[in-house]
Design a protein around this nucleic acid. Structure first.
Ligand code: MN
Ligand code: MN
Length: 547
DNA sequence: GCGGGTTCAG
DNA sequence: TTCACACTGTCAG
DNA sequence: GACAGTGTGTCTCTGAACCCGCAG
């Protein structure tokens, strides 16, 4: 499909692009060690730089010389010596045998470390058991292994981590993002990068993010530990910073996970303590549930009233109304009864087959019109195409590197507030021809460019044309405004199918198989449709043998 | 030998 | 390096 | 009916090389 060839030193160019970008902008925020790292790297010749980047993009810090084969580097030995002279690499460093053993395969370990007489017993061991057995005689094993191959250890990984954080704003992305882009496998919108607004304002802020990621790395192992360990782990997280929403979002996410695990361990007081540190949902919901569970109904109701007074999401608002009612009624208190919406439902019996229930339902409904299995992709997609340039508009601080699929504040609650004028002006085009023009133009011109609202492989010209023709502007506007109000929550929960009858109109259909029920977000969308007279229903499918 | 998983390259 | 959705099991009213 | 926990398909690309465990 694509015959893109990368230049032979592509990885070095990418590395230099990244570190130079950061060095240009962040000199005053880099630590002495990070500056030394940068300067040392610049001081060595290209072959040494290439070897360094090759090793840096491999896993681990220790490498066996004999496992390295890079035809574009003239002499790996020379390059290694130069790197060693610059302090970027150690040759045959003194290390624990325990970190040496994983560099060798089982066959090698048996050949190098096991006497002939013992082969029979050792050969039957699994990898883990063999390593353990060998380390009983650590010194001799270490000696034999270090004699078997030259070992390199790269330094400066930590410094490079800071550079990556400053460049990407996260530690999820790395140099492979350059490759994927340059191979044409991932396309990013070409928004303008403002030099002016930097992602990080102080060294302390960088340190907090680094500390967060150090903790986050350990989460997988820590999550299986006991309650005290979890609480200690939480205490090791960096402090929140009022001005840093990104950090706050990451800390909340991690803390919610920890608190949820504490609940499972029945450490309810500790869980509550952690929830108290979270600003975002569902912290208050969990605290209300905890209070009720612990026999403190008044406290539970107080949390519900807190939420009702200042909901941070529609989900927690709905929860507070329903949960408050249940708790209040149980204790004879007054509480308004939450509205209950009975979604119009039609039941059909379909022949059981290999296809999923959604596809079977779509086939069944094809008798009533053109039917598409779209879930969230239709409304998210058309919204994304309609406001494409607003999503990528140069709002202060929104874009800080070329590898973003969305502005930094895309899922923040005030995304739409920061772009209120642009969005208002755009909404005024909804009733005219500019709406369909914009959507169709962007569908053609932006095709393939990454956008969290647009799932390209699920959108077709036919679907978009039909939707734009059949769905009235007033409906688009109501739906778009609801999506934008809470992009995180409202981008999901839209019905499975959209049905276009032969002549006019449309209907949104959520398919439910036996034993499946509407999820909370699906029900909220259904209530919304009812409120705005948007045709919708649940199609309950039962499996039968009649065709 | 195979199948599954991981690592690496582009 | 998930996320959205479906499915299953439980508990209580 | 409410809730929790788990499974599934899908994500970021894909193919080659390698390693390991297991069956034969
Ligand atoms: Mn669905
Ligand atoms: Mn469904």
């Amino acid at each position: 499909m694509k015959a893109v060839d990368l230049p032979p030193d592509y990885y070095l160019s990418n590395f230099l692009s990244l570190v130079n970008f950061v060095a240009d902008r962040y000199t005053s925020l880099l630590s002495p060690g990070e500056k030394t790292f940068y300067d040392s790297f610049q001081s060595v010749d290209p072959d040494a730089q290439k070897l360094y980047v090759r090793l840096l993009s491999r896993k681990g810090q220790l490498f066996r010389r004999s496992k390295l084969s890079y035809s574009e580097i003239d002499s790996i030995e020379t390059a290694a010596q130069i790197l060693a002279g610059a302090g970027l690499l150690d040759i045959d460093p003194v290390v624990e045998p325990a970190v040496l053993v994983p560099l060798f395969s089982k066959a090698e370990l048996l050949a190098l470390c096991v006497e002939r007489g013992e082969l029979k017993t050792f050969r039957t061991l699994g990898r883990g058991a063999l390593e353990k057995a060998l380390l009983v005689q650590a010194e001799s094993v270490g000696l034999r292994l270090s004699g078997a191959d030259t070992v390199y250890r790269i330094n400066g990984e930590e410094a490079f981590t800071t550079f990556k954080l400053c460049y990407f704003g996260n530690l999820r992305q790395d140099l492979t993002d350059y490759v994927l882009r340059d191979l044409g496998l991932q396309t990013y919108e070409r928004y303008s990068l403002e030099q002016r607004h930097l992602l990080f304002q102080s060294r302390a802020q960088i340190e907090r993010h680094l500390q967060y990621y150090r903790c986050a790395e350990q989460l997988d192992t820590v999550i299986g530990a006991d309650a005290d360990t979890l609480v200690d782990f939480h205490a090791g997280l960096p402090a929140k910073d009022r001005a840093d929403k990104t950090l706050s979002r990451r800390l909340d996410r991690l803390t919610l996970t920890l608190a949820r695990q504490l609940e499972r361990l029945d450490a309810l007081d500790q869980a509550d303590m952690l929830y108290r540190a979270c600003e975002r949902p569902p912290a208050r919901e969990r605290r209300a549930r905890l209070a009720a569970k612990q026999g403190r109904p008044a406290a539970a109701l107080a949390f519900c009233r807190d939420i009702l007074a200042a909901p941070r999401s529609e989900e927690e608002l709905t929860f507070a109304g329903a949960f408050g009612y249940r708790i209040a009624r149980r204790h004879g208190d007054d509480w308004p009864q939450p509205p209950a919406y009975q979604v119009p439902t039609k039941t059909v019996v379909l022949a059981a087959g290999p296809a999923s229930v959604e596809w079977a339902a779509a086939e069944y409904l094809a008798a009533e019109g053109r039917c598409f299995y779209v879930e969230n992709t239709l409304f998210n997609g058309v919204l994304g195409l309609f406001i494409w340039d607003i999503v990528f508009a140069p709002v202060a601080g929104a874009f800080f590197n070329p590898f973003q699929t969305a502005p930094g504040d895309f899922y923040e609650p005030d995304f739409h507030i920061a772009r209120a004028e642009l969005l208002q002006a755009r909404f005024e085009q909804l009733s005219g021809p500019a709406f369909t023009d914009t959507v169709k133009r962007n569908f053609r011109h932006k095709r393939g460019i990454a956008n969290p609202l647009v799932a390209w492989q699920y959108l077709s010209e036919e679907l978009i044309d039909l939707a734009l023709t059949r769905i009235p502007a007033a409906h688009w506007e109501k739906i778009f405004r609801r999506q934008l109000a809470e992009l995180r929550n409202n981008r999901a929960g839209l019905p499975d199918l959209v049905l276009f009858p032969p002549d006019s109109g449309y209907e949104l259909v959520e398919v439910k198989g036996p034993g499946d029920r509407l999820q909370k977000n699906q029900l909220r969308w259904m209530c919304f449709f009812a409120e705005h007279n948007i045709a919708h229903r649940v199609l309950a499918v039962e499996w039968g043998d009649c065709a």
